[in-house]
Design a protein around this nucleic acid. Sequence first.
DNA 1: GGGGGGATTCGG
DNA 2: CGAATCCCCCCG
Length: 202
Amino acid sequence: MAGSGRLTREFFARDAIVVAPELLNLVLVGRGAAGRIVEAEAYGGELDAASHAYRGATRRNATMFGPPGHLYVYFTYGMHHCANVVCGPEGVARAVLIRALAPLRGLGAMRRRRGGHLSDVELCSGPAKLCQALGIDRADDGADLVSGGGLALVDDATPPPADPRCGRRVGLSARTGEAAVHPWRFAVPGDPNVSAAGWALE
DNA sequence: GGGGGGATTCGG
DNA sequence: CGAATCCCCCCG
């Protein structure tokens, strides 16, 4: 294994489809809490009808076109935030959506931000849930995960699974056409924070 | 300047 | 299964 600590900018500068399975088991730290990434999806920019960057740069997706290793946060359905790790070289819009975390530390803070009396698995088992649990919103769009202060992505020497679960991405509308069939969703096999549904490859 | 849709979640 | 409920994008 390659030691522990912060990751390099070069780690994120590769294509999202390469980085996505390697994000599994890395730890997202911040806001008095931490969670291990157990589910992630790659998005392929202008080549991918399901990507926010499919039709080029806009104010909303600008962070995806910036340098790798930053966080692209977007607001959706009028009430939810989702967080992506920007990949690829600067100017190339690639990203990996973080879909689930295994809570590691600060479960009290997570539970307070999520509200209600939730089980551990209910805290971060979804892309909008984990943002709420860590207090991530649009103000965090562009945050630097490599050298920033508030949020960081670190390697705690837990390697990614040798046999990650792979399947279709979640929640894509029929309009995205064949982009929906790509097996660009990855997860840690057997982790209870990963939803069981939607893994069909055909 | 207006309307439709969205990488979701939760409750009925 | 529909509501919640905002931002962005496209079209006129």
